[in-house]
Design a binder for these strands. Structure first.
Lengths: 208, 208
DNA sequence: CGCCTAACGCAAGCATCCTTGCGTTAATGT
DNA sequence: ACATTAACGCAAGGATGCTTGCGTTAGGCG
């Protein structure tokens, strides 16, 4: 983030520093999954990592930055992007996987952490790239569908995925309603066909 | 919330207690709009309300409960629900109003406050009714459309609105992308017609 | 009017978060 | 191997959030 030193200070990326960094980030990821974002304290992370509290404060500064770094660095697998040959099944599988991930303590914490740190411009931008990279992968689903002629050529890939994912995210974030098992499928249908339910009328499009 | 006293203690709803309550809630609402949720402290609210800090702690306990009470009690106008005679224009106007509200410091704070307090079951349930009441009003748009024959009779009113509002909410919450002026209209189109873009084929429906 | 007590104000105190100064450890270049 | 110094540990201390005990104020009611 702040990797612009006009005066080239001799950094020490190997050895103890890297070891400490790994230990702290691993501890943060573990506590994130076990306790949740709000219960994650810097003191707790430092204790589990076997590191002094001061070190964490000096290297990361705030809880939000630490969590962000742990997410960016840690296993960045993301949601698996299926390729079944049809948009509907692809989107449904992806939505299902996303819903499953958001039901995970880690997934819930990641989403909440992003909200928590959305007031800091730097952090917000970092999270933006985080989501972007995840959505770009899923964008392949829509792009393939366009290439196959299942969707119009002027389809807005990002917006389409946003339409599919946003309801799942809000349910996970606001917690105002559980994510029913059939919700991913229903969302997929509504996104693809619209409220007017033209799946029958447009049958000829992408059917085998 | 915890208004279940088997032993009827003599409460005093009139006079000073009510005055204090009003002052505190008003101060909370003001600071919520001016500073945002995270910068809102109980000390600040008490100071502005001309009330001792202890009083606020005793009556509300936590910052989250205070904010919730301020939102439930305060001017509960919500988003205006238009009635233009056509779904498309109704939904577009509503989405526009929602986007405008979410761009407000207050609107943003309300959304974030709901996320912040989604781990407490009681608070989460209270927020649920809050959102529900707001969505129920907007549900009239969809219901009217179904009555007019613009939408299928098996349309899921709540889910339809969720599909329209969720993208706006996630943008406001995650802050990962600004809400462009034409986003409400685009969302409306996509929700009504689906990704396959049949707005042309169904031109006769709701265009002026 | 005058008693009773819910609700408030005040102040002390604890807990947690976060910062800072200083001495120590260990990675890096010669 | 040796000097240099980035990075860490330790301890003290300030800041803020939150609780608690006690005395005071002011509604509600006989």
């Amino acid at each position: 983030m702040t990797e612009e030193e006009p005066e080239p200070i001799r950094r020490r990326p190997g050895g103890r520093a890297a070891r400490v960094r790994q230990a702290v980030l691993a501890a943060a990821a573990e506590l994130l999954a076990e306790e949740g974002v709000d219960r994650l304290s810097i003191a707790g992370v430092a204790a589990r990592a076997g590191v002094n509290e001061t070190t964490v404060y000096r290297r990361w500064g705030t809880r939000e930055k630490l969590v962000l770094d742990a997410m960016l660095t840690g296993s960045n697998e993301g949601i698996p992007v299926p390729d079944t040959g049809a948009v509907r099944t692809d989107l449904a599988a992806f939505a299902r996987a996303l819903a499953q991930y958001l039901a995970t303590p880690t997934g819930r914490s990641v989403a909440r952490a992003a909200v928590l740190s959305s007031d800091d411009p730097d952090l917000a931008e970092a999270w933006q790239t985080f989501w972007q990279s995840r959505l770009d992968q899923a964008g392949a689903i829509v792009d393939r569908a366009v290439a196959r002629g299942e969707l119009p050529t002027d389809t807005d890939t990002a917006l389409a995925l946003e339409l599919l994912c946003a309801p799942l995210q809000t349910r996970a974030l606001l917690g105002h309603r559980p994510i029913e098992p059939d919700l991913p499928e229903r969302l997929t249908d509504m996104v693809l066909d619209g409220l007017r339910g033209k799946s029958q009328a447009l049958h000829s499009f992408g059917r085998s």
